[in-house]
């Protein structure tokens, strides 16, 4: 599997140090349940889902998630984050096949 398309969004777009923003991580992932049949072959599509997500700021973990196949295809994970100053947010995930990727976004508070 090549790199999956993923995105980090910060809302609102403009923020100051000390303000609380929303951080969303979205990724193109099938999140297969292991219960769905492939319509052409009739075979069960094996379970394939993200099972761990970590949100970090400058390398320090501030939210961890254990996740399951009940999350939708192309899942979205949104949490709040109190901006301590300039830096970088990194979100990493691992799935049940061992695949692991990460995405980063700069945090640039105005004031």
């Amino acid at each position: 599997m090549g790199k999956r398309k993923s995105l980090i969004k910060i809302k609102p777009k403009k923020y100051k140090t000390g303000e609380i923003v929303k951080v969303s991580f979205m990724v193109m992932h099938p999140m297969d349940t292991g219960m769905r049949k492939n319509k052409k072959t009739g075979k069960i599509v094996p379970a394939h889902y993200i099972n761990e997500v970590k949100f970090m700021f400058n390398g320090k973990v501030f939210t961890t998630m254990k996740t399951w196949e009940s999350l939708s295809t192309n899942p979205v994970f949104t949490v709040n984050f109190k901006v301590p100053g300039k830096g970088k947010i990194t979100v990493s995930y691992t799935d049940n096949t061992g695949e692991s990727q990460e995405k980063s976004k700069k945090i640039k508070p105005k004031g």
Binding site: K22, F62, E69, S70, L71, V79, N80, K82, P84
Partner: peptide, 15 residues
């Protein structure tokens, strides 16, 4: 979550 979140919130989309 941790105090670093500022607000205790989680949003996602489920099946």
């Amino acid at each position: 979550l941790t105090p670093m979140n500022g607000i205790a919130m989680f949003a996602t989309r489920v099946k």
